[in-house]
């Protein structure tokens, strides 16, 4: 039960920068959706969404400044989910 009060305080400016990044990415994803890339578009959309999601997790949800255990847990959860989808598709792709 050691003292753990080394709290990192993010500045207002940093939050603003993160928001601008997220908004730019939103514009990109809308524009790309209009380009009619066909089957590729879903992957592009998901990649952009993942970048946005990671940004939210890292800065707004403070993962960057928290203990590493949280990053490990979050990574584990997303990996687990990816594996579940992948394994389910072993059935659907080869049916």
């Amino acid at each position: 039960m050691e003292k753990e009060h080394k709290h990192h305080i993010s500045s207002y400016f940093a939050h603003g920068t993160v928001l601008v990044t997220l908004l730019v990415l939103t514009v990109i994803t809308v524009v790309v959706a209009g380009l009619k890339l066909g089957p590729l578009s879903v992957f592009v959309a998901l990649i952009i969404a993942s970048i946005k999601g990671t940004t939210v997790l890292t800065y707004f949800m403070h993962l960057k400044y928290d203990k590493p255990i949280y990053r490990i847990m979050v990574f584990g959860v997303f990996l687990l989910f990816a594996l579940i989808i992948g394994i389910t598709f072993i059935d659907y792709v080869f049916r």
Partner: peptide, 21 residues
């Protein structure tokens, strides 16, 4: 143990690849 759920479904019509996996 999280990834073996399909062994309850061997006769369900699941794909062959999934069954052996």
């Amino acid at each position: 143990g999280y990834f073996v759920w399909g062994h309850h479904m061997f006769t369900s019509g699941m794909s062959y690849s999934a069954r052996w996996f």
